[in-house]
Design a protein around this nucleic acid. Sequence first.
DNA 1: TTGTACGCGTTATCAA
DNA 2: TTGATAACGCGTACAA
Lengths: 336, 336
Amino acid sequence: MQITLKDIARMAGVAESTVSRALNDKPGVGQETKAKILKLAQKYNYRPNQLARGLAVNKTNMIAVILAEMDSPGNIEIVKNIEKAAEEVDYQIILCNTNNDLKKEKSYLSLLEANQVDGAIFIGGKLVSSQLLRLSFEEKNPMVLVNRLAEENFFTSVLTNYSQGIYKAVEHLFEQGFRKIALICGDKDNLTESEKINGYYQAYTEAGFSVNEDLIFSTGADRTSGYNAFLEIMNRDIIPDAFISTRELTTIGLVEAIKFGGYFIPDDFAVVGYGDNILTSVIDPPLTVLNEPAAELAKLSFDFLLKLIKDKLEGQQIKVLTPELIVRESSIAKYN
Amino acid sequence: MQITLKDIARMAGVAESTVSRALNDKPGVGQETKAKILKLAQKYNYRPNQLARGLAVNKTNMIAVILAEMDSPGNIEIVKNIEKAAEEVDYQIILCNTNNDLKKEKSYLSLLEANQVDGAIFIGGKLVSSQLLRLSFEEKNPMVLVNRLAEENFFTSVLTNYSQGIYKAVEHLFEQGFRKIALICGDKDNLTESEKINGYYQAYTEAGFSVNEDLIFSTGADRTSGYNAFLEIMNRDIIPDAFISTRELTTIGLVEAIKFGGYFIPDDFAVVGYGDNILTSVIDPPLTVLNEPAAELAKLSFDFLLKLIKDKLEGQQIKVLTPELIVRESSIAKYN
DNA sequence: TTGTACGCGTTATCAA
DNA sequence: TTGATAACGCGTACAA
């Protein structure tokens, strides 16, 4: 058995409360007794039972990080940075993967209800009603949403301005002389993706061009979807001169399909991808990408959550970050 | 406040113990009372406080996954699979990143001592004495090591046979006619890496060739290290005709350096990399790699840990898996 | 400065 | 089948 506070108290010949005070650096304990207690604790390698402590003070120093998909390198990057921030203030993170499954989401949410964690950060995921995420109506459970939208959202959130990101990308391609830009995106009723589509429309209309709907291709978020998207688009009436892919993995697939078809980037098709991670940096040619500021998203969301937990956040906060367009070879028009 | 068992007991007009029995499907509770209790629990969305339960039964249904480095896609893959296995049996995982820091390792280990988790899985990390990992000498804390070695190891472990992996790679390159195979690996006093070096030596000697030490290059595990390794090796007396890179990220860097130098793979240099993940699959040309069976490593280690927790594992188990050599274009000799 | 006593929410033991 | 009660290990008012 692990040594307990009671054991130390007995050995030191003092009351448990005294030991508790000594170990927690609270006032009201004599120099000598404190020294004696600390020495004993050291000697027997005493570790407070966090469950008991948590039960007593109703706090666990743990937060849940609820991930919609673990396959996204961008999401992993965010998790990594949350872990880093958490570690600095002695918080533990418990990792939950929902695979976009609402039922699993609900079940992980019960970690909050069960007082097993002090708060939760959601990263990505489907649009849901805020009611669904809210647990009980009385309870105000600390949670923040990262890159996730909720209907009638009343949660503190850290978002990426996807619309503006795609806008930038289209604008850039326009400058390079491309006009028929295909958009490989997700389903329109995924709010995140529909935002991106909005950015696309906005850039076109503001430039005085009209959008050809045949250039917008909604598909899954994985690699194969990106690959197939290229094949199917090439079968349509209008052949694009550039591609924007809005998700990391579809970008990979898209590039593969283009290459496999014997085409060259950017000579035959310009490409703007999503996510400035090791993946996109490895592709040949170097890819122009929209970069999501993962470190910042992580830091902000964790800070928000911490404040929520400590009841130091007044009202709902929403912070929107702008993705950065990193221009590389894949989107530069060839010399004329 | 969250509703508690006591509240339900009061509302149902029964004792707390009865409620506990009813909710946990334990025998000794009448049909009607049980129904009444369940209905109330449902109605008020009762969730047992896991801390209290954990305190009472000394079990948390959580395990720590202690990661030496989060930058390795292979490690992430293992974590993902552990999460999957854990979720199936209703275990939560808490994610710890040590960055190869022994102090952080120790601190995370205290999760075990503090009874906050039921067990721990270590993934990767430096060679340490078993004593260092063992917490207290009395206590038998459930833990298993994945791809990690310990001096006088008495831990249940799941390992990859790195030596055999590299052996296979060298053998394959020999068959392709390459003789001057450079090995980009880690430090020799990293046991994992020294094992790989052993495999290299073994393959050479068994084939009747002698090893030129100038072809072995020890360096860091990151991308830049791989990049620089190529540059420095090209400055040595002997120019290799093939490369084996033993870590995922160095492989990326190596390939970049080769390409940047204006060389072609495999025409100028054959390459065998490490890790069959999305990263290596994206590289051009398709890379021959040694693949670590992440899913299997994860499944086995979690199963072992579960048995350890339930005291159903007799003695120390050590399972060694063999990496698979996936042959692709990068290591095929050009036509003669 | 120190000790007593109770509460946190649950499970388990024993008696009714 | 039920209920009362102790126990898990800690924190904290309150009293001494």
